[in-house]
Design a protein around this nucleic acid. Sequence first.
DNA 1: TGCACAAAAATCGTATGCAATCTTTTTTGC
DNA 2: GCAAAAAAGATTGCATACGATTTTTGTGCA
Lengths: 237, 237
Amino acid sequence: MNIADQVYSAADSATQDRAQTIRDQLRDAIVDRRLAPGTKLSEGEVGTLFDVSRTVARAALQMLSFEGLVRTERNRGAFVANPSPEEARQVFASRRLIEPGIAIAACGRVTAADIVAFKAQLDEEGRFIAERGPHARRSEIKASGDFHLLLASVAGNAILQRFMEELVARSSLVIALYGRSGASACGHSEHTGIVGALESRDSGLASRLMLHHIDHIEADLDLRVRAGPALREALNF
Amino acid sequence: MNIADQVYSAADSATQDRAQTIRDQLRDAIVDRRLAPGTKLSEGEVGTLFDVSRTVARAALQMLSFEGLVRTERNRGAFVANPSPEEARQVFASRRLIEPGIAIAACGRVTAADIVAFKAQLDEEGRFIAERGPHARRSEIKASGDFHLLLASVAGNAILQRFMEELVARSSLVIALYGRSGASACGHSEHTGIVGALESRDSGLASRLMLHHIDHIEADLDLRVRAGPALREALNF
DNA sequence: TGCACAAAAATCGTATGCAATCTTTTTTGC
DNA sequence: GCAAAAAAGATTGCATACGATTTTTGTGCA
């Protein structure tokens, strides 16, 4: 980490809420699957873990519940979300609606510096795919999500960017839950194709490629209900 | 208020958070323009007003800040959002992306009972347009937003529905801020047309009508910066 | 009068305490 | 031995308290 990063994160944690930094760390843990769906996140535990009071921990959990990554039940507490197949479909239906439009917008605003950033992102994805093991696989899911977030930031609409942050985070959960392990690496070449479309400012192509890409991600999921869904829910599993 | 309503709201306030009901009331007040943009919402004041502690008031304000209706500054407090013209454009760009898709989805799921609800909604809109005065105008903006929320609920995607709730609320703020008063009533006939397209399950028509409708709403805004924008921001006005 | 500076008031950020609710364990009756 | 009831323990919901920060007020000096 260089000096600039140190200053930035120092200023960050000092200026903005501690709750927000806790939220970010918890979100990373959920998206990385270090916290399994259904895991209880008690206020006290989170508080002692991050060395803050329950008040702050509670605020962080409230934020995550707004994002749909955590489900809170009154008088019972907060749990890592366990999206149902139906929820998973809604997540991808939302992405199909939003992301092709984001790709078009990004085509109209992308700069040379952005392209450089995209290429760096693609390189990082490639590294994680080359590696093996569960840690690399988690990093791969994360990096794949970051690609979509980078695109959203280039599109220049702060509102859509926030929606995408939520959708990508929830997608990561869904992929971790329902993903068929073998087929995950195929997204990389599609990302490369989208960057190519961006580079040539071909918004129609970028939009089409993005739509296909989302379809492929969803097709790689196994959204059939495994056991009886009522039972699964009853067991909170 | 009839018995059913009493029971409903009693169960509501008992079952779910008090913070949530405070948020809803504040949101209504903001959307109705009873709380002007820039108004300070101090935790203590909100708390005493609703007869709860600062803890609960703070949670409600945090929710509103997630929705973009309230802007919070550390150690300074919460203020009713004052969206810039650029933010206003982003709100409508987002709606252009999402709502035509919602209209298509709604076409595929709309029931006879939904159509009845839409007709009732249109009637209510018509009543408020016929009335005059500032109160009727506020109700008219609210009712117009409710039409879009009804459509989102028919579309059957909970995630998109929540996005739309946020977008409609922010739109109401934007319209209140930048709307040209004379031209607001024109949306009603377009709503009627959209319901007609729904009734005949013509998803292409519904989608096109929706897109035009959003364009018309945005065209009725005056998004030119009035004074120097830096000055306006500096004055927090 | 205008400005700089200090004291006071208001407000926020956070920790902590207590009552209410839920969960688990123990006890009791059959 | 097992089911139901009761008690103990844990956890949340909420109010309140206190230090930190910001805003306002008041005062002296040019």
